[in-house]
Design a protein around this nucleic acid. Structure first.
Lengths: 181, 181
DNA sequence: CCATTTTAGTTTCGTTTGAAACTGTTGCAA
DNA sequence: TTGCAACAGTTTCAAACGAAACTAAAATGG
């Protein structure tokens, strides 16, 4: 991160001529770094899941949520997995076909279908969880114990802030005083 | 029977019954958290770029890389943006249509096309960079100065490790000694 | 040289995605 | 009641994606 203390916002990191724009190096740009990292990690895991169990990441997430044997509706799954309802709906129909999930119409509210994992899916869960945790540990092995705590804190804070900024109106690019050379 | 020091890897985080699997709470699972965070951030930015300039994230990345006026080939762009060549190729053709980029055949090697931003794209660059930096700072404002340094370190270490693990054979799920009730 | 392999980039094809439209159900209110 | 808004979930459609096949241009090497 740039030491960036001084000015208000968007302080230049370069030491070049005055009229120049603040430099943007993609490899130091947080959204880019997050995107690449998340992508690398997800992709690695996705290949693992796919190769071993023939499931996709959305399906894995659903299995992870329902793995304790709980029953819930598609909407609730969507909330808890941070996927949107379309994604959940599609994952569920795949899982119905491959007999990983059981759907029964709710009795009080026929809009909500109650979803439960089948034994087949629970077996996958039992096998996949250690794999997933192992992978996670292999990644975090790169960090000291302290750093793992820091990571947890940082991710939480960043997510909270990012969530705030989603709704909020666009950050109207501060009109940097165009030194205007 | 020795006091079975269970651990090795994938130590359980829960305090529940012995036979139980190590718990996996999606919201504490690193790949999930990274994915959600990166998604939130990227999505917010993408909407910004799209609304304001009608460009996508791949296009933005190319603009970011070429923004200093440099000229380079598609392959080089792919490397520097961590996008694959297909993605780059498609982004470039869009940018050719919208007159954001200039392509001229290389003279020494006619396979490599030299790509340069047009003034139109440079104007976008000048406007978009402050916006991007502002957004980045709005996000990192959630962190103390110390934490920003930590974030930088952590992301670098994690990315390096994740990269190592991409190539490497699958983490063969450690066969947890099924503590077995 | 000509044949083969490698490299740069594009195209194709099947899949995935997300937004918006749609279907069916429930809750609410006149 | 019936009429309408809100809700749960699905379908549709167009864009985006990735892997693999393809085209064209160097580089290699017999």
């Amino acid at each position: 991160m740039p030491p960036a203390r001084r000015s208000r916002k968007a302080s230049a990191t370069s030491t070049s001529s005055p009229a120049e724009l603040p430099a943007l190096h993609l490899t130091r740009f947080l959204p880019y770094r997050l995107s690449v990292l998340a992508n690398t990690v997800s992709h690695t895991l996705a290949k693992l899941y796919e190769k071993r169990f023939g499931i996709t990441i959305p399906e894995w997430r659903i299995i992870a949520i329902l793995g304790s044997g709980e029953t819930m509706s598609a909407g609730e799954i969507a909330q808890r997995t941070a996927m949107d309802k379309v994604q959940v709906s599609r994952a569920i129909s795949r899982m119905l076909e491959s007999a990983l999930i059981l759907r029964e119409s709710g009795d009080t509210d026929r809009r909500k279908a109650l979803l439960t994992l089948t034994p087949k899916a629970l077996a996958i869960y039992a096998e996949i969880v250690p794999m997933a945790l192992t992978y996670q540990e292999e990644v975090t092995d790169a960090l000291s114990i302290d750093e793992r705590g820091q990571l947890d804190t940082l991710l939480s804070k960043l997510q909270a802030r990012a969530d705030q900024l989603v709704t909020r109106p666009a950050p109207v690019a501060v009109q940097t005083e165009q030194a205007e050379g």
